[in-house]
Structure formats: structure tokens, C-alpha cells
């Protein structure tokens, strides 16, 4: 049994790692989504965190944990500075502003010397371990669950339902928005730092527009209203190519098509995402959380 487990890990260890990191990224987006704000900048925050952590490790020889925190901090500060002006925008316009920000970050990474340009920042030691990723994920998930029932959490939910009403009730809308946005940016930055220390290098392409969209996909597929929804979504979407590989769907266009089809089916037939499956199993528990 132990041998089989080791074998399983040898084959799927990297998938497991990526699931963990993508789940963290999905949670980072969920903080703002829970308040009805769609940010397409979280991939860029992950990039900022990844580059900052990598640079701290390579050039400043800082220990792993310090570099990670540094990466998260950089992402958080940029999130704060960016959040103040852009968070008065709503819906698609917020999405576009953050998207433009993301593109500028990506282009900066392509053109700067310290980031290594298109070839990326190389020589980052591979020190992120599976247990570190999942410990962080567990901590973040716990934090998110607590957050949901905190004053901040209720404020965010009420802002999603009706922002004007929330403001009338004396909720300081801008303040809570900026706080949520900054928390999301820090989580993304943390995930980016771990990603950089998992892959030996990071490149501008690891954090482009399509990655930003992926984060949204994780959330919607998994379900945004329960804390474990984004984690489920990230797990399914990240593992999907491997599952299809395993069941023998030929590599290439066909697998790509099946990938798209499954995404479509989930969206059409599971209105509240994968999490709703579990909600049906435990209706009482789910009701309490979505109420």
C-alpha cells in the first residue's frame, strides 16, 4: 500500500502541487468575488509575488520563508496602491482596469533586466514542498472561513447583494473593498512565490491574461459561495488534462475539445458549481453557509 502511494506520488506529485497552488490562487480571487468585484489582476499579483520572492532569494540570499513573505508583501502593497483608484469601478470595468494593470506588469517583466526578460528569472532553488503548499492552503482556507463570519465577511456579502443599501447602513464600502482587494493580492503573491520556488524559474507568460481567466474559471466551476468551492474548481480543472490523459483521450485537439465540453457542462448543469454537489449531500450545513 505504502509503495503504491509512493508510486502515485511519483507520477502525480506535480499535479498535486499545482492543484494546491492553483487552489490558493483561486481563493485569492474569491476574496474579492465574494464582494461582487471581478479582478483580472490576481495573476499579475501572483507574478509580482513570484518575481519578488525569486529576486529576494537569488540576489539577497534570503531564506525561503522570508522571501515568500516578502513576495506577499510586495503584492499586497501594489494591491493597496492599485486598489485605491480602481475600486470605484464596477463589474466589467473593474475587470478591464485590472486586466490593463496585469498586461502592464507582464510587459514590464518582459522588458526589465532584473526579471530576466522573456527567458524569465532563472536559478530559483526548487524548495517548495507539497506539505508547505497544503499547510498554507489549509491556513488560508481556515482564514477565509473565519473571514466569512467576521464583520468584514458580512460587509462584503452585503456589498455584493446591494452596495447602495450597504453604504446606507453605514458600511464603509471603499474601506472594505480595499481591504479585501489587498488580502487577495497578498494571497496571490504568496502563491506566486511558492510557484517560483517550485519550477526553477518563472517567466512573464506564467502570469498572463489567460491565467487570470483561469482563476475565474476555478471559482465559477467550483462555486463562489462556499469557501471550499474554489478549491474544488482548481482541483478539477488542473487535474482534467491528466484525467483525460489517463482515460486515453488522444493528445491534441480532441483533448482540448473535451476539456472545453466538460467546462461547458459544469457551467450549464451545476449552477452553484461543484460545491453544490456536496451541498446536496449535506443540505443543512450548506444552507447555513449560503444563507
Amino acid at each position: 500500500m505504502l509503495e503504491q502511494l509512493a508510486q502515485f506520488y511519483a507520477v502525480y506529485g506535480s499535479v498535486i502541487n499545482f492543484i494546491g497552488i492553483n487552489a490558493l490562487l483561486a481563493l485569492s480571487l474569491n476574496v474579492t468575488l465574494a464582494a461582487g468585484m471581478l479582478s483580472l489582476g490576481n495573476a499579475a499579483f501572483a507574478g509580482l509575488g513570484g518575481y519578488a520572492a525569486g529576486i529576494l532569494t537569488i540576489y539577497f540570499k534570503l531564506p525561503y520563508v522570508v522571501s515568500l513573505c516578502g513576495g506577499a508583501l510586495v503584492a499586497g502593497i501594489v494591491g493597496l496602491v492599485l486598489g485605491l483608484p480602481v475600486l470605484r469601478l464596477r463589474g466589467v470595468f473593474l475587470a478591464m482596469a485590472t486586466l490593463a494593470f496585469g498586461e502592464v506588469v507582464r510587459i514590464a517583466a518582459v522588458n526589465l533586466d532584473i526579471t530576466g526578460g522573456a527567458e524569465g528569472l532563472t536559478g530559483i532553488p526548487n524548495v517548495t514542498k507539497t506539505w508547505i503548499i497544503y499547510l498554507t492552503l489549509a491556513g488560508t482556507a481556515y482564514f477565509m472561513a473565519v473571514l466569512r463570519s467576521s464583520k468584514l465577511g458580512w460587509a462584503l456579502v452585503s456589498m455584493r447583494e446591494d452596495e447602495t443599501a450597504a453604504a446606507c447602513l453605514g458600511i464603509h464600502v471603499t474601506y472594505y473593498k480595499v481591504v479585501a482587494f489587498t488580502i487577495g493580492a497578498m494571497i496571490a503573491g504568496l502563491a506566486g512565490g511558492m510557484y517560483a520556488h517550485l519550477n526553477y524559474l518563472i517567466t512573464p507568460r506564467d502570469f498572463g491574461f489567460f491565467i487570470a481567466v483561469d482563476l475565474l474559471i476555478y471559482n465559477i466551476v467550483g462555486g463562489t459561495r462556499i469557501w471550499y468551492g474554489p478549491i474544488l474548481g482548481a482541483a478539477l480543472i488542473t487535474a482534467l488534462p491528466e484525467i483525460l490523459r489517463g482515460v486515453g483521450v488522444t493528445a491534441g485537439p480532441i483533448r482540448m475539445g473535451v476539456n472545453g465540453l466538460i467546462l461547458l457542462l459544469v457551467i450549464l448543469f451545476l449552477p452553484n458549481g461543484l460545491a453544490s454537489i456536496f451541498a446536496r449531500v449535506r443540505p443543512a450545513a450548506a444552507k447555513a453557509e449560503t444563507a
Binding site: V11, S14, T203, D206, E242, R245, A251
Partner: peptide, 15 residues
């Protein structure tokens, strides 16, 4: 197929 993405390349290598 690594789908031109390093992440999937890593998964494929392990497999």
C-alpha cells in the same frame, strides 16, 4: 501533449 504550458510539461514528465 504539453499544451505549450510548462505546468503540463512537468506533469507529463512525471507520468
Amino acid at each position: 501533449d504539453d499544451a505549450s504550458v510548462p505546468q503540463q510539461g512537468t506533469n507529463v514528465y512525471n507520468k
